[in-house]
Write a protein that binds this DNA or RNA. Structure first.
Lengths: 229, 229
DNA sequence: TTCTTGTCACCTAGGTGTTAATAT
DNA sequence: ATATTAACACCTAGGTGACAAGAA
């Protein structure tokens, strides 16, 4: 059996509609997909891997609303048509694969080396996704069968785990400002964009508590004026 | 067969008498021990590991000379007595072990995670060495024998490689100023201590060329006065 | 006197969202 | 109008030798 780590954080994102950035060079996921694993044979070898399947066959686009002077993204997604043709999906093997069950079980397994890209020609082995499409991460455990004719038993040596709260929309830029703020509030690498209570997160964070979000406008670079032509 | 990487740099250090810093928390080696491997069975599993054996049974101490106002370390080592009793030496498994021969051979194998410590009670799995003693790094390749009674064949499944130019003295602080300067000149992490030709190293470095060393005295923090009571 | 320890400024290496410019 | 890209400031994380103080 498998237990999703940081489930509370995943839930919080999922409630807003999780978005993951995709870039040409590859971008890590946040939250990172991490699991605790139970019930393996400690002495047997296993391969751990992830892949990503489309949640539906739709392409999305952003709804928007407009103030007197500015246009803002709303948090609503509109269906924009049929999904782009999906190339055969890549898989990401956990870099420690293969390893013994004992090794996998003795600590949290983290897929923090996994990167998402929108570059169809990527040759870095990253996961290729279409922007503005929704995806479901899947986690697979493969028992390395020592028998010569192990192909025959592929079915029974293979187990898949799906956590629906890890679903997300692939984007090249964040569409929902609340997602942005929650990322800034919870990802240590985005600490530079926080503007309040540097102590209070994530140490004292409780799932029920209100996220420490700032107002819409944050002019970190007051030199440049807002773009509105 | 195995080929030592950065041999020219190792030779340059070895000519001066290589020193490696040991600390309580653990310090990496520089140069890093890296090898290219040839002639493995691409489909077989191998474990790669290193250990460190005393070169002799001596403890060393520094010779010194004295100017009118300051005492300097010389580059000469004096025998200071018999070696400290050696605890059973630890080994460092390359973190990718075990892996297929094909995997090991397709790129340089680097032991950059290996750390040296002088803390006899270290529980981080670092290599424990006695300061002021000389050591010879050794590189071992272990073929993972799939046979049930593999213990019987331990001898033939084991191969050791020794590069004498990687010998060094473990120290808690550098003794030979030329070693310090060569480390500063060639280790990217010490770039902050260079004071000349930031372009010229290591890009244009040739084994025959003179190392880009600065003079003895370098007062980076002019606030504090030199210690000479 | 000689060696060891802990702290520090200064780096490498790379993960963030922002922003302006560009592409579609 | 909307989506993508590339450069950037600002972080995390951790590897350097210098230095002053402490230990043997």
């Amino acid at each position: 059996s498998v237990q999703l780590e940081m489930k509370a954080l995943w839930d919080e994102f999922n409630q807003l509609g999780t978005e993951m950035i995709v870039t040409k060079a590859g971008r890590r996921m946040f939250p990172t997909f991490q699991v605790k694993i139970f019930g393996m044979d400690p002495m047997a070898d296993y391969m751990l891997l992830m892949d990503f399947v489309p949640v539906d066959d739709k392409r999305y686009r952003q709804g928007a609303f407009r103030s007197r002077r500015y246009a803002f993204h709303s948090s609503s997604w509109l269906v924009a048509g049929k999904a782009d043709p999906a190339t055969p999906g890549r898989v990401h093997y956990h870099p420690d694969s293969p390893a013994k069950g004992a090794q996998w079980m003795k600590q949290i397994v983290s897929f923090d080396k996994l990167k998402l890209t929108n570059n169809l020609l990527d040759d870095n082995g990253h996961i290729i996704l279409n922007s503005m499409h929704r995806y479901q991460p899947r986690f697979h455990v493969v028992y390395v069968d020592p028998r010569k004719d192990s192909e025959k038993y592929a079915e029974e040596n293979f187990k898949t785990f799906v956590f629906e709260e890890t679903r997300f929309t692939a984007v090249t830029a964040y569409q929902n400002h609340r997602i942005t703020q929650l990322k800034i509030a919870s990802n240590p690498f985005a600490k530079g964009f926080r503007d309040c209570d540097p102590e209070d997160w994530p140490r004292n964070h409780r799932p029920g508590a209100l996220p420490l979000m700032s107002a819409f406008a944050r002019s970190r670079n007051p030199v440049s004026s807002p773009a509105h032509q």
